[in-house]
Amino acid sequence: MIKARITVTLKNGVLDPQGKAIEGACRNLGFEGLASVRQGKVFDVEIEGDDRDGAKARLDAMCEKLLANTVIEDYSITLD
């Protein structure tokens, strides 16, 4: 079994209204010193088998087709 974590974030330069809202809420709650906040998504996935290269290829395909909008989002995959 291969465990993976996929992190999807907006590309630099893409407006992030949810991140701005979180930033404002943090400031309103008294959290000082924030330069900026960007939000994203995290997916924890388990792949059957032990072929790490094959698992990485399958995860890349999942991200390209479903989990990330690659026009405006970047993704990274970390295998355990």
Rank of each mutant, 00 (worst) to 15 (best):
D80G: 05
L67M: 11
N28H: 12
R38E: 08
R52V: 06
I22L: 09
E23Y: 06
I2D: 02
V37I: 15
S76V: 00
I6P: 02
M62N: 08
Y75V: 07
C26I: 13
D16P: 07
L10G: 02
T78I: 12
P17M: 07
C63K: 12
E64G: 00
G33N: 15
A35L: 15
N28W: 12
V45C: 11
R27V: 09
I72T: 04
R52A: 06
T70V: 06
I47V: 15
E73A: 01
P17A: 08
D60R: 11
L29Q: 11
V45F: 04
I22W: 05
A25W: 05
A21P: 09
I2W: 04
D44H: 09
D53R: 01
E32A: 15
I22Q: 06
Q39A: 12
D60A: 08
Y75R: 07
D51C: 02
V14S: 05
G33E: 15
S36N: 08
S36A: 10
E73M: 05
K20R: 01
R52F: 04
S76K: 01
K56F: 11
T70D: 04
G24L: 10
L34A: 05
A21K: 06
G40V: 08
I22E: 07
A57K: 13
G49A: 06
G54I: 03
A21S: 08
G49H: 10
L15Y: 06
I77A: 09
S76Q: 03
P17W: 10
D80C: 02
L66W: 14
G49M: 08
G49F: 05
T7R: 10
R38W: 11
V14W: 03
L15P: 07
M1D: 08
I47F: 13
S36T: 09
A25R: 07
V42N: 14
G19P: 00
V8D: 04
A55M: 03
Q39K: 12
C26W: 15
K41E: 03
R27A: 14
C63Y: 09
R27N: 14
V8F: 04
D53K: 01
L34D: 06
I77G: 10
T78M: 11
M1Y: 06
T78A: 13
N12E: 12
K41R: 11
R5Q: 12
I77E: 11
G13S: 00
V14R: 07
G30I: 14
I47A: 15
A25M: 08
R27L: 15
T7I: 11
K41D: 03
S36M: 10
G54T: 00
R27W: 15
N12H: 12
I47P: 14
V71H: 10
D50C: 14
T7W: 05
G40L: 10
A68R: 05
I6D: 01
S76M: 01
E64V: 00
E64W: 03
T78N: 12
F31M: 15
D44P: 03
S76H: 01
V14A: 06
G30F: 14
A4T: 00
G33R: 15
A57W: 08
D50Y: 13
A21Q: 09
K65Q: 11
M1V: 11
A57I: 06
D16A: 01
R52N: 03
L79A: 02
M62Y: 13
M1F: 08
K65D: 05
K20N: 00
E32K: 15
N12A: 13
A4C: 02
N69S: 04
N12M: 07
L10N: 04
G13R: 01
D16M: 01
L15A: 04
E64L: 00
D53W: 01
A61K: 13
